[in-house]
Amino acid sequence: MKKKKSIEVTTQTVGRNRRNFLKVSGLAIAGSGLLLASCSDDDDNGNMLGGTFDLGTGDVGVLNYAYALEQLEAAFYTNVVNGSFYASASADEKAILLDLYNHEVNHREFFKAAIGANVPMEQQLTADLEFDFSSVDFGNRDSVLTTARILEDTGVSAYNGAGQYIQTAAYLTLAGKIVSVEARHAAAIRTIINGSADYTAFAGDDIIDDNGLDLAESPADVISKAGGFFVTPFTYKNPQA
């Protein structure tokens, strides 16, 4: 039996989390310690471990994991779009960010529906994850685009790393349909960030290795990077069914 990965997302140590994320991404991320709202109505379900929701294992775990990440991306782009973008946004940049908003909101609602139809109620991740974007200056181009780049690259890396935990071929295909769109996003964002300074940024040497392979990170690594955005705590202790 392979050793199962254990992942704790906790907001108990906000200061440390923020420093870790800063180190990794160059972005300041804040967190706080709110309880998961949807868990209060059922103390007996299997996904509540010590009061903290666990995403689960196998198909259920990946569906909830993807839903958490899509909720994060959708919430971010909703803020970007609702804030009328940043002041200097070009027409091209606005069009791209609006497309990304549309795609991520669609992904979020897809997972909501899919989980609602296929996952037992008590194992369903809440539709109302709370996020903390206080570290993002939505009026600032660099802040918005850098955050977008991190979210898209992380999304690609997360799907690539979690594909192996999917048990049902149809779900794997669905994840594949979405991850390539995330990769298309990532390339576009990287291109508008770097412009003529680096024409190779769309698939830069900072993310593609010497075998021509993209990032693939474990849920533990993904959550440690993006965890600062999540106000609602959750765990993903055993991705492998």
């Binding site: 690539n160 790393g161 192996q164 995330e182 698939a203 392979l213 993209d214």
Partner: peptide
């Protein structure tokens, strides 16, 4: 093998986008 294939898959998607 699956993970490596997924890692190539998303690189192709980055290429396609660009």
């Amino acid at each position: 093998v699956l993970t490596a294939a997924l890692q190539i898959h998303s690189v192709e998607a980055r290429h396609a986008s660009e």
